[in-house]
Computed example of a mutant assay.
Amino acid sequence: MLTCPQCQSPSTIKYGHTHSGKQRYRCHECGRQFVEHPAHPPIATDTRQLIDRLLLERLSLAGITRATGVSLRWLQYYVNAKLETVPHELPVTPKKRGQLTIEMDELWSFVGSKGEKAWIWLALDRDTREVVGYAIGDRSQKTAKQLWDSLPPVYRQCALVYTDYWDAYGCVLPSKRHRVVGKETGQTNHIERFNNTLRQRTSRLVRQALSFSKKWENHIGAVVYFLRHYNLSLQL
């Protein structure tokens, strides 16, 4: 008896043919469309979970297809769908009002071509090493304001902020809690080290690589996907 591969219901009907001429069926219970003997069977859950982990490493999509055996076309659809659904809020451990210190910096990247710059602005809690805020856009005061607005309220109210000399910071951050420093002081070492981690773990941010983003949505999704995983790993 023919059953639905998704819900195992025997309530199925013929539903036309595929482009290659195979008989297509449709499940009355869940609406799933399928063929009886597919040339490309569904990707196993274990393989999908492996792909989710590999997306957090410095691997191109072509590299992931070689490691998992899935097709590049299927993988591209899978990745696009995953990045579209990534929540844009970062999981940050709740903090009480008091002495908080964050470091801010911006990281160069591009979308489509090097002429389409996509600056990644980050704020890192010096004590917990969590990324507590981010913004992706140009290198203007507008994006600096988006970074500031992305911070949890307790950081905007209490935190001492260390940045480099980029002018946009001074236009947005409270002057009494803003400290402008050079690299030689070591006051922004943690955020600069994290920038390196982000570049090394996210293939589309690696310099001189072919694994760049072609769509802004995917670029933002890939960055946030890693940032969320990074914060959650610190909370274990």
Results as ranks from 00 to 15, higher is better:
Gly221Val: 04
Val161Glu: 01
His88Asp: 13
Arg53His: 14
Lys95His: 10
Tyr225Trp: 11
Leu124Ile: 11
Leu100Ala: 05
Tyr77Thr: 14
Pro5Trp: 09
Ile64His: 11
Leu55Asp: 10
Leu232His: 11
Lys176Ala: 14
Ser11Ile: 01
Asn189Cys: 10
Gly133Ile: 04
Trp148Pro: 00
Ser113Gly: 15
Ala222Trp: 07
Lys215Trp: 06
Gly137Val: 12
Thr12Lys: 01
Leu83Val: 05
Leu107Val: 07
Leu100Asp: 00
Pro42Asn: 09
Pro87Leu: 06
Tyr134Cys: 04
Lys14Phe: 01
Ser71Arg: 03
Gln23Asn: 01
Leu124His: 11
Val35Cys: 06
Ala81Trp: 05
Leu124Asn: 06
Pro87Ile: 03
Ile102Ala: 02
Ala39Trp: 00
Pro174Arg: 13
Lys214Cys: 00
Ile191Gly: 05
Gly69Glu: 10
His178Asp: 10
Lys114Trp: 04
Thr45Ile: 12
Gly182Ser: 13
Arg129Phe: 06
Val223Glu: 00
Tyr78Thr: 01
His37Leu: 09
Leu232Thr: 15
Arg26Pro: 01
Glu192Ile: 12
Ala222Tyr: 06
Tyr225Arg: 12
Ala159Arg: 00
Leu124Ala: 08
Thr128Phe: 06
Leu107Gln: 11
Ala135Cys: 06
Phe110Val: 09
Asp105Pro: 07
Glu57Asn: 13
Pro152Asn: 13
Asp52Gly: 01
Pro10Thr: 04
Asp138Cys: 01
Arg228Pro: 03
Gly170Arg: 15
Val154Asp: 02
Ala44Asn: 02
Thr3Tyr: 10
Gln99Asp: 05
Asn231Asp: 09
Asn195His: 15
His19Ala: 15
Leu210His: 15
Glu116Cys: 02
Lys214Gln: 04
Cys30Met: 09
Leu83Gln: 09
Arg177Cys: 07
Thr85Asp: 13
Ser109Trp: 11
Asp149Met: 05
Asp125Ile: 09
His40Asn: 10
Gly31Thr: 07
Ile64Gly: 13
Lys183Ile: 01
Pro153Thr: 07
Gln8Phe: 07
Ala135Asp: 04
Leu173Gln: 08
Met104Gln: 05
Lys96Thr: 13
Glu217Met: 01
Met104Phe: 05
Pro42Asp: 05
